[in-house]
Design a protein around this nucleic acid. Sequence first.
DNA 1: CGATGGGGAAACCGATCGGTGTAATCACGT
DNA 2: ACGTGATTACACCGATCGGTTTCCCCATCG
Lengths: 190, 190
Amino acid sequence: MPTTDKASSRDRLLGAAARLTYRDGVGVGIEALCREAGVSKRSMYQLFDGKDAMLAASLEQRIPRYEALLAHPEAEHATPRERILHVFEQMTKAAADADYRGCPYLAVLVELKDPEHPASVVARGVKERLTETFRAEAERGGAQDPHLLARQLVLVFDGASARAGAQVEHLDDGLATTTVTALLDAAGME
Amino acid sequence: MPTTDKASSRDRLLGAAARLTYRDGVGVGIEALCREAGVSKRSMYQLFDGKDAMLAASLEQRIPRYEALLAHPEAEHATPRERILHVFEQMTKAAADADYRGCPYLAVLVELKDPEHPASVVARGVKERLTETFRAEAERGGAQDPHLLARQLVLVFDGASARAGAQVEHLDDGLATTTVTALLDAAGME
DNA sequence: CGATGGGGAAACCGATCGGTGTAATCACGT
DNA sequence: ACGTGATTACACCGATCGGTTTCCCCATCG
């Protein structure tokens, strides 16, 4: 087994793509990606169909990490409200980092401006799954209109992450959680 | 006076920059911008210091139009609540257009990822002024914490515009205004 | 009329884009 | 030791990037 087999080349490419794209946007060059990953351009084109496909795969691979970060660590004993608030507490913590650039999936959707792009499809999936998670919690928590509340929460999620990532807002005073609490209360969630 | 004097060349460049940047992102080429504007590249470099400066100027020029669109038409007789809601009603109407890509100022902030970029500075100014407008209305309306409410409203504004622009959400059922109403009520605004 | 000067078209600059072709090199199995 | 297949570095492709320069036309003015 070589020191760098096919799987690890793939992983390093996906990691580099995630890192550089998040920092510099989807406009980063293939050359830079391969340099960062330590993989030749030739190999990258054998592993992926092209830049678009690699970007999509990169976003896809990060999904478990991303969703695990937002999931409540003690899911069993936590109430729906606690689980929803946990999502925004995690975002608030992440936004304190100077390198925070907001939700990478929203950023890709905004930057690509093309809903048909493979990466946009992946990103939209993440957003839809987050909405569904919120909806399920809202329902468990007895909200009057769980789907509406879920969509409201995602509105706040994306607004807060975009603004914090663009450095136009700082969430460290609990802006996001405060806003969410108001919405949860208004929706009649226990 | 020639059919195309210096001022009209400037205007057509700014218009083309606003249009193409909004549709395709800040990555559009100078060549395409000049072609769309019907102005030679040489003239554009005499009118502006470069692409960054023209982009910033383009965003700057659109500000009056943008803010007029969000301002309540009968500002005198409208209540603070009506004026705030009007902003979100206008966004909802704009989002119904298939060509809607969200707030251009937020998009630029997200795409550039550089708060120091001249265009980012302009965009941030727009966002800060919107926040201040909300804050003033919130204060007039007797909100408990006008500044907090204003920041919450901009969260919803940017979240809704980004999501509608990226085609992940549609606002035509009043999602934005419903959310805002809940926040206004929670803040104790009359 | 001829001189002058500003602006347009287009060539040009080096750099980079996404993507490919090639030849040498590498680790490996036999 | 040899063959093999994967990976590498690197040249190359046409296109485009932001930006500059050249040339030429045409409008203005004396």
